[in-house]
């Protein structure tokens, strides 16, 4: 199967803090890749590597056969036109209404006349079910609606890759369901590759063709959702079952409890 995204031997440290150590990951074209992992493990940083907004300290980040880390600014901007990204807090432009937000990338990058832009924007809005909300301001939208608008904007230029940063966080079950449905449709109908970063395991597994579990700076397990469900690797089990204690400790590293309590010096 042809690979669209390929990260190999990626290393990255944020100041003193090591985030990734020899991370390897590949997502086939046209499939839905889901990256799960605990909060703060650098999942969003991974999307920023692919978008070229952050450069890793070492390693290759290939998108459609192009190494993102080697691109200059202009080439990078050209590549980004074929990517869409849905941000966690939607990141809609607050001074534009829904219609203009979706039209924004089209107007910035094409010379289409307004009639064509209108068709295109209404098509995308129809797809996410918000054609009727075109005149609303971002402030008037609920969290779920804002994310659907952000999704419509992300696919406005029909990119080959759509990235979702925590698409389910903070949504009610119905809105979550809508997003799940949309990610499916975008993959099936538009044949775009999706890369989803989430810590919502059940939704993540329900949409994935391939799941990557991140931990300790690398991919600790990967496979189809079914393989992940059935695995007995303890790290994976703890994450999938949501167990409070396990390989990832419940306690922040601390000296022995009893010794700490009876420590007279710090009284």
């Amino acid at each position: 199967m042809e690979t669209l995204i390929e990260l190999s031997d990626v290393r990255f440290a944020y100041g003193q803090r090591r985030i990734f150590d020899n991370l390897n990951l590949s997502v086939p074209r046209g499939k839905v890749g889901v990256i799960v992992g605990p909060s703060g493990c650098g999942k969003s940083t991974l999307l920023n590597f692919i978008g070229g907004r952050i450069m890793p300290d070492a390693g290759k980040v290939e998108v459609d056969g192009i190494d993102v880390t080697k691109l200059n600014r202009q080439q990078l901007y050209k590549l980004r036109k074929s990517m869409g990204m849905m941000f966690q807090n939607s990141a809609l432009l607050t001074d534009l209404n829904v219609f203009d937000n979706v039209a924004f990338p089209v107007r910035e990058h094409t010379e289409l006349d307004e009639r064509l832009i209108r068709h295109l924007v209404l098509l995308k809005l129809q797809m996410v079910g918000l054609r009727g909300a075109r005149d609303l301001r971002p402030a008037e939208l609920s969290g779920g609606m804002a994310r659907r608008v952000a999704l419509a904007r992300a696919i406005a230029l029909d990119p080959m890759l759509v990235m979702y940063d925590e698409p389910f966080t903070g949504l009610d079950p119905i809105s979550k369901g809508v997003i799940v449905k949309l990610i499916h449709e975008i993959g099936d109908a538009l044949e775009m590759t999706s890369l989803v970063v989430t810590h919502d395991v059940s939704e993540g597994l329900s949409i994935a063709d391939r799941v990557f579990l991140l931990g300790d700076g690398k991919v600790i397990a990967q496979g189809t959702p079914q393989e992940m469900q059935e695995t007995d690797v303890p790290e994976v089990r703890q994450f999938i079952d949501g167990a409070p204690d396990g390989p990832v400790g419940y306690h922040y590293p601390a000296p022995d409890y009893l010794a700490d309590l009876s420590d007279q010096e710090n009284l």
């Binding site: 901007y77 050209k78 980004r80 990204m85 807090n89 990141a91 607050t94």
Partner: peptide, 11 residues
């Protein structure tokens, strides 16, 4: 609110 980041990602 990541609007600037979103613009960067939209090239």
């Amino acid at each position: 609110t990541e609007q600037l980041a979103a613009m960067e990602m939209m090239a």
